[in-house]
């Protein structure tokens, strides 16, 4: 699937995304497993909430991390990765 700027995604059914105090990281939990996310993946996925469009997420993070070049590319490849892993699903 090609990700378009107007697309909206949410955490996939049967998956849970949460902050873990003990691990100091975000995690994704699902039947049979869990993944500990690094800080940037956690940052991106916490914005994937079934309401925010990709465009909005990119704009927001660009604003927040002004110094990071290629941030748009990083965000899109993170979303693509999460989609391939079936952690997130498309709403619109």
């Amino acid at each position: 699937m090609i990700i378009e700027h107007q697309n909206v995604f949410k955490i996939a059914a049967h998956h849970r995304f949460q902050w873990e105090e003990a691990q100091q990281s975000h995690v994704i939990l699902f039947p049979e497993g869990m993944v500990k996310l690094n800080a940037s993946a956690g940052e991106v996925l916490s914005l994937v909430d079934g309401k925010n469009s990709i465009d909005y997420i990119v704009t927001l993070l660009k604003e927040k991390f002004k110094d990071v070049e290629s941030i748009e590319k990083d965000i899109l490849s993170m979303i693509q990765f999460a989609l391939d892993k079936a952690w997130i699903e498309k709403v619109i």
């Binding site: 873990e20 003990a22 939990l29 869990m34």
Partner: peptide, 12 residues
């Protein structure tokens, strides 16, 4: 048990 294990970090 559930409470104590959660404090230790258990998630699943």
């Amino acid at each position: 048990v559930l409470r104590d294990a959660r404090k230790l970090g258990a998630l699943q």
